[in-house]
């Protein structure tokens, strides 16, 4: 599913609002295809390039542009559209919409080779996080995908943070303060005492966070 962004004039003010909103929803756009809808704006080619550049600098990947004349881009989409496919607005713009075919390679997993110490926060909206050490008390790991911990979880682990209910949490020893998948969470108080200090996996079944021992 692609999201549509429809900037409003003045663009600078709209970008500011977007920044405020993104601060509160970090990682919302990670890995998501976004279509830029310019129907309510009349922008020159260079202004569109500038806007696309601004969005790119915020980590938003524009896959296509709607509501603008392809002639505005001098026959090309801006080079940031590397991940895009040829798109059409149905108004005869096919010829100008082809983007370079080369696939953009962003890392889809993050490897932490040490402990995540108290007070540290690892945020990786782009995919899975693997921690070779432990997550200490009052430390947190937030991942867009699953979280794998080879040590103990004593702090917080939040998987599927971008709205991915398929994400899971694995660890070899659970003493967590909080486990969450896609916003559904359990605190240490809600953890069955029998699970404590055992290897577990956690997953979502509907709106219930399930935790089962691994041994």
């Amino acid at each position: 599913m692609a999201f549509s962004l429809a900037p409003e004039a003045p663009v600078a003010g709209w970008l500011h609002d977007l920044d405020v909103w993104m601060r509160n929803s970090a990682g919302f756009f990670a890995g998501r295809p976004v279509v830029l809808d310019l129907t309510s704006l009349a922008l020159s080619g260079s202004a569109i390039q500038h806007l696309v550049g601004e969005l790119e600098s915020r980590g938003i990947r524009i896959m296509g542009i709607e509501g603008a004349d392809p002639g505005d881009f001098a026959g090309h989409l801006p080079p940031v559209l590397r991940g895009g496919r040829p798109a059409s607005t149905g108004e005869g713009g096919e010829s100008g919409r082809a983007a370079a075919a080369s696939k953009r390679t962003e890392p889809t997993s993050l490897m932490i080779e040490t402990h995540v110490r108290s007070g540290q926060s690892i945020v990786f909206p782009g995919g899975d996080v693997t921690v070779i050490g432990s997550i200490s008390s009052a430390a947190e790991v937030i991942a867009g995908g699953s979280i794998h911990v080879y040590g103990a979880i004593r702090g917080r682990a939040m998987a599927g943070a971008n709205g991915n209910p398929q994400a899971r949490i694995f660890c070899s020893c659970v003493d967590a303060e909080l486990l969450a998948i896609d916003g559904f969470y359990r605190t240490a108080d809600d953890l069955e005492p029998g699970l404590l200090n055992r290897p577990i996996q956690a997953w979502l079944e509907g709106a219930t966070l399930m935790i089962a021992p691994f041994d």
Binding site: H115, R117, S118, G119, Q120, S136, S137, A138, A139
Partner: peptide
């Protein structure tokens, strides 16, 4: 004690 150990953990993170 737990509070001292947690604070030490934080300090180790800063040292690193």
């Amino acid at each position: 004690e737990v509070s001292s150990v947690r604070d030490s953990d934080r300090i180790i993170g800063l040292l690193d």
